[in-house]
């Protein structure tokens, strides 16, 4: 169908970016501003690209056929979890903007390393990544990303209602009080961080065949800020926020294509306007204002 040919890639990209926004949402549920997702996304993509193109894996590819793809996702998830633990445990002792900066540093270090190893193809990257399940058209990837999105949303909904979810929320509201009440902060913060890492890694592994190629430019600081924008503009308090933010902000430059020279200027203006006038994000527009929990004052107490 023509529509799918024309817009299939864009629609799948929207789902993919929504998922990456969600990968930021998990640490945020526990009050952690982590911008590490692009690092795990890049890692997952490299794993899939290497397993798909490197000669060392040829016998494995032959024997498994199409089953190598779910294997790639699994390996990417496990590797991201491992790296997430290694990086998360020391880094999550930091709060607020300091954690964000540490994760930015992590992403950049990973990028430079990837640029220089030969197994990652160096500056050129890896190409000729084989397509899963005989996919030919980009829109067919909706059969991979779509179910993943559904699964993750279901998982998130259940998580929010569970004990773990309540622990996250208590950490988000007031870490010290939660700790005093018996919620071990480090354990849950690392858990949230690792969940986000695993999601980003799996999305990366699915994206390498989607983009046909993978290189060090897939996991950069610019991506960190883009995902942050998805969450902030979509809405950071609700799981639909990052999905909506990701989908719309990914579609925006394409929708603006007819504007040609003005495309990115308008894109930038939309970002500014959205952050100015959507304090609760887009999701906030659609939901009736709940009574906001007692917020800590932004500034110090006036009276001493």
């Amino acid at each position: 169908m023509d529509f799918l040919q024309n817009y299939g890639f864009l629609i799948v990209t929207m789902i993919q970016q929504g998922l990456l926004g969600l990968s930021l949402y998990f640490p945020l549920m526990a009050g952690q501003l982590s911008l590490a997702s692009p690092g795990f996304y890049a890692l997952g993509g490299y794993i899939a690209a290497i397993m798909g193109t490197n000669a060392a894996f040829a016998p494995l590819r032959e024997s498994l056929g199409s089953w190598i793809f779910p294997l790639e996702w699994l390996v990417a998830g496990v590797a991201s979890a491992a790296l997430g633990l290694i990086v998360g445990v020391p880094a999550l002792r930091l709060r607020g903007i300091y954690l964000a900066l540490a994760t930015i540093a992590f992403v950049e270090i990973l990028r430079v390393v990837a640029l220089n190893l030969s197994v990652t193809g160096g500056a050129v990257g890896l190409f000729g990544v084989p397509q899963p399940f005989g996919f030919v058209d980009r829109w067919q990837y909706v059969w991979i990303f779509g179910p993943l999105l559904v699964l993750v949303l279901l998982f998130t909904a259940r998580l929010e209602r569970s004990r773990v979810g309540r622990a996250f929320r208590s950490l988000r509201e007031d870490e010290l009080a939660a700790d005093a009440m018996g919620v071990p902060p480090t354990r849950y913060k690392v858990m949230a961080f690792v969940i986000g890492a695993v999601l980003a890694g799996i999305v990366g592994a699915m994206s390498a065949p989607f983009l046909n190629t993978w290189n060090a430019r897939q996991g950069t600081f610019d991506a960190s800020i883009a995902y942050l924008a998805y969450v902030l503009i979509g809405g950071s308090r609700n799981m639909w926020g990052p999905v909506l933010g990701g989908a719309l902000l990914a579609a925006l430059p394409e929708v603006l294509r007819p504007l040609q020279d003005w495309r990115l200027i308008i894109n930038g203006l939309v970002l500014v306007v959205a952050s100015l006038y959507l304090p609760q994000g887009l999701v906030g527009l659609f939901r009736r204002r709940r009574a906001a929990p007692l917020a800590r004052p932004a500034t110090q107490e006036v009276a001493k």
Binding site: F9, V124, G125, G128, R138, N212, T213
Partner: peptide, 10 residues
């Protein structure tokens, strides 16, 4: 070239 590796197969 990186862009070519991505879009040329399409």
């Amino acid at each position: 070239s990186q862009q070519a590796f991505s879009a040329d197969p399409i």
